[in-house]
C-alpha cells in the first residue's frame, strides 16, 4: 500500500516566520506511520504544495517513518482550495497513491475543503473528521464525528481519502536519529507545468481586501455583589439587548 499524506505549512503559533506542519496534518502523518508499523511494505509519500520555504517543514515530516516527499513548488498566494485539491489530485494519480491521509482542516484559515474536494475530483470514497481508522486488506473503516456527538461509521474499499481529526492518535516527536535520517530522504520538486496545470485554472477566488475584524463596543461592566449583578444582567438581556 502506498499512502499519500498531504501536509500544509502554517506559520508557527500564528505569528513569527517558521513554517510548521498544520496540526491536523500531524495526526494524518502519525496515522500513516502507525499503518506502516503494522505493515512494513507500506510506503509513505508526503505531499505539499507551496513556496520553497517549506523545505524545513518537509524534513520535519520525513524525520518520521515517511519514505519520501513530493513538493509542488508554487507561489501559492492566490490559489483557491479547489486549486490546491486539483494539484493534489494530479500528484496522487502520478504517484499511484492508494490511501490519502490529510488533516480535516488547516488551523490558519480553517476552510475544511481539501479532503472532500480531493475525494470528489478523484471520485474516491471519503471520510472526513475521522477519530478512528482501521484498514484490513483493502477495506477501510472510519469513525467520523457527526452531529450531536454521534459517530458515523464509514466503510469503503481503497482508494479512500481520510480527513484526520483531533483524537485519531497522539503524534510522537521524532527521535534525533529520524531527524538525521530525514536529510538523506528524497524530496522531489515539481513545477505546476510538469503536472500539466496552468496557474489561471487554480484560482477562481480573489481576495478584495483583508481588514482587522471590527471591534465591538466597549463592554458594560456590571458591578455589585453576585446576587444583584445576576439580577441586573438578566434585566439587561431582557430589556436592553432583548435576547431572552
Amino acid at each position: 500500500m502506498r499512502i499519500g499524506v498531504c501536509i500544509k505549512g502554517v506559520v508557527e503559533d500564528n505569528e513569527g516566520s517558521k513554517w510548521v506542519i498544520n496540526t491536523f496534518d500531524e495526526y494524518a502523518l502519525e496515522e500513516a506511520v502507525r499503518l506502516k508499523e503494522k505493515d512494513e511494505k507500506t510506503e509513505i509519500v508526503v505531499i505539499t504544495v507551496g513556496h520553497k520555504g517549506l523545505k524545513e517543514m518537509l524534513y520535519a515530516a520525513l524525520a518520521t517513518k515517511a519514505d519520501r516527499a513530493v513538493h509542488v513548488v508554487t507561489p501559492d498566494e492566490d490559489m483557491s482550495g479547489f486549486g490546491i485539491a486539483t494539484i493534489l489530485k494530479s500528484v496522487v494519480r502520478q504517484e499511484r497513491i492508494d490511501l490519502v491521509l490529510l488533516g480535516k482542516q488547516a488551523v490558519d484559515n480553517a476552510s475544511h475543503q481539501i479532503g472532500g474536494m480531493l475525494a470528489g475530483l478523484l471520485n474516491w470514497a471519503q471520510a472526513i473528521d475521522v477519530i478512528e481508522l482501521d484498514i484490513e486488506g483493502d477495506e477501510a473503516t472510519a469513525h467520523r464525528l457527526a452531529e450531536g456527538g454521534k459517530i458515523e461509521v464509514i466503510r469503503a474499499r481503497l482508494p479512500v481519502v481520510i480527513g484526520a481529526a483531533k483524537g485519531l492518535n497522539e503524534p510522537r516527536y521524532p527521535a534525533l536519529r529520524g531527524i538525521i535520517a530525514a536529510k538523506k530522504k528524497e524530496i522531489k520538486e515539481i513545477a505546476l507545468e510538469e503536472l500539466g496545470l496552468a496557474r489561471e485554472d487554480l484560482c477562481g477566488i480573489k481576495v478584495e481586501r483583508v481588514f482587522a475584524a471590527p471591534e465591538k463596543e466597549a463592554c458594560k461592566f456590571i458591578e455589585g455583589e453576585p446576587g444583584k449583578a445576576a439580577e441586573e444582567i438578566v434585566r439587561l438581556l431582557r430589556e436592553e439587548a432583548k435576547v431572552i
Binding site: N14, V107, D108, N109, A110, C203, G204, I205, K206, V207, E208, R209, V210, F211, A212, A213, P214
Partner: peptide
C-alpha cells in the same frame, strides 16, 4: 474570517 480569526477577508469569485 482568516488568519486564525484575527482578520477578516472580503472575497469575490472570478471563475
Amino acid at each position: 474570517a482568516c488568519f486564525y480569526g484575527k482578520k477578516q477577508a472580503e472575497l469575490s469569485f472570478t471563475g
